[in-house]
Amino acid sequence: MKPFIRPNGEQRWMEVRGETRFDSESRPLLMSGISSDLTDRHEAKAYSDLMAQEMG
């Protein structure tokens, strides 16, 4: 997970995965991937950790 800053200054947490396929001469043929916005999950985990720290 990596933080990204949007042009408006908002921070979003993203996970990016991808792969490149190559031909027999090691030239790239195809690139594919996906990016997922994990901001809600990251914020929920931070809140959960804070609550656990305050209670314990």
Rank of each mutant, 00 (worst) to 15 (best):
M1H: 01
K2T: 15
K2N: 09
K2M: 08
P3V: 13
P3F: 09
P3M: 07
P3C: 06
F4Q: 10
F4D: 12
F4I: 12
I5T: 15
I5M: 13
R6S: 11
P7A: 05
N8C: 06
G9P: 10
G9T: 08
E10W: 00
E10D: 07
E10M: 04
Q11C: 07
R12Y: 00
R12A: 10
W13T: 08
M14R: 09
M14D: 00
E15P: 00
V16N: 08
R17M: 03
R17S: 12
R17P: 01
G18M: 02
G18Y: 14
E19Y: 02
E19P: 04
E19A: 10
T20Y: 05
T20K: 12
T20N: 14
T20Q: 13
F22C: 03
D23C: 02
D23Y: 06
D23W: 07
S24M: 11
E25M: 05
S26V: 05
S26M: 09
P28N: 02
L29Y: 00
L29P: 02
L30I: 07
L30A: 06
L30N: 05
L30P: 02
M31G: 03
M31F: 05
M31Y: 03
M31R: 00
M31Q: 02
S32P: 01
S32F: 06
G33S: 13
G33E: 04
I34S: 09
I34K: 07
I34A: 09
I34L: 07
I34Q: 04
I34C: 03
S35V: 05
S35Q: 14
D37Y: 01
L38H: 00
L38R: 06
T39H: 04
T39S: 06
T39A: 01
T39P: 07
T39R: 02
D40I: 14
R41T: 14
R41H: 09
E43L: 03
E43G: 01
E43R: 08
E43N: 00
A44G: 05
A44L: 15
K45F: 01
A46M: 08
A46S: 10
A46V: 09
S48T: 15
S48C: 09
S48D: 13
L50H: 08
L50V: 13
L50R: 10
A52L: 15
Q53V: 11
Q53T: 14
Q53M: 11
E54W: 12
M55V: 15
G56E: 10
G56H: 12
G56Q: 11
G56L: 12
G56R: 12
